[in-house]
């Protein structure tokens, strides 16, 4: 546990020291929110949640990329692969919580007549999904430019695809539109249930993917034997 917390601590320090990036990441959801606040309440809430997901995924993508050079030697220093990716995930989830809290308060103050509990659930699921999504992208696409372009594509598709279309369910943040519909339009609870299941499955699948990719990349090669 000490090793996981040490990695989490150092990852958080790294994130907090990228001040310019932090400002952009913190402001991105606000821009999304304000873009539709005047004319469409539901869209502004959906967009702010997507903005949070995009911002945190980007932070995770760059965090994963920055750790690539260091992780093999940390592995040799006594860390197990799961301690490394869990430490980074814990840090990113904590950063996501810090990023989301002000936006939840903003909606709480600014928007009446919506289900604030459901909006809090969207934010929790968004943070849970975005962190492993960004880390998985960084593991699959080691060059940050490629990862960023793919992230851009996914979030762009998330915004323009019809959520009723079955293929849109393959996108990782589909749940946010479903739960937001329940929260804003007060539809029946099937929207909430579908969104909850989709978000939970995405978070689990993406975390498992990060675990798999990390274990593969940082595996102990069979030619090397430590004799005690």
């Amino acid at each position: 546990m000490t090793k996981v917390l040490t990695v989490a601590d150092m990852t958080l320090r790294e994130i907090l020291r990228r001040r310019a990036v932090l400002v952009i990441i913190a402001m991105m959801p606000l821009a999304f929110y304000l873009s539709r606040r005047g004319d469409h309440l539901g869209q502004s809430i959906r967009f702010v949640c997507l903005g949070l997901g995009w911002a945190l995924s980007t932070a995770a993508l760059f965090t994963g990329g920055a750790a690539r050079g260091l992780e093999p030697r940390l592995r040799l220093s006594g860390y197990r692969a799961h301690q490394l990716y869990l430490g980074r995930l814990v840090a990113l989830w904590a950063a996501g919580g810090l990023l989301s809290a002000p936006y939840f308060l903003l909606i709480l103050v600014d928007q009446d007549g919506v289900s604030h509990g459901a909006i809090a659930l969207i934010m929790v699921l968004t943070v849970a999904v975005a962190a492993p999504f960004g880390l998985a992208l960084s593991a699959l696409l080691p060059r940050e430019l490629e990862g960023t372009l793919l992230l851009l594509t996914v979030v762009g598709l998330q915004m323009i695809m019809d959520p009723a279309d079955a293929s849109s369910r393959l996108l990782p943040f589909w749940f946010s539109r479903e739960i937001a519909t329940y929260a804003v339009d007060h539809t029946d609870t099937s929207y909430l249930a579908r969104g909850l299941v989709h978000g939970a499955v995405c978070a689990l699948v993406l975390t498992a993917l990060v675990a798999l990719l990390s274990a593969t990349r940082l595996r102990r090669r069979p030619h090397l034997r430590f004799v005690t």
């Binding site: 150092m10 320090r13 790294e14 020291r17 990228r18 920055a66 750790a67 050079g69 260091l70 093999p72 030697r73 040799l76 220093s77 006594g78 030619h223 090397l224 034997r225 430590f226 004799v227 005690t228």
Partner: peptide, 22 residues
């Protein structure tokens, strides 16, 4: 081929291997 190590390993790369912001 194979490698046997008796004990623990420390490794210093030619470059990289550090964290920019720490």
């Amino acid at each position: 081929g194979r490698v046997h190590v008796h004990g623990t390993l420390g490794y210093c790369p030619q470059d990289g291997g550090t964290s920019e912001f720490l």
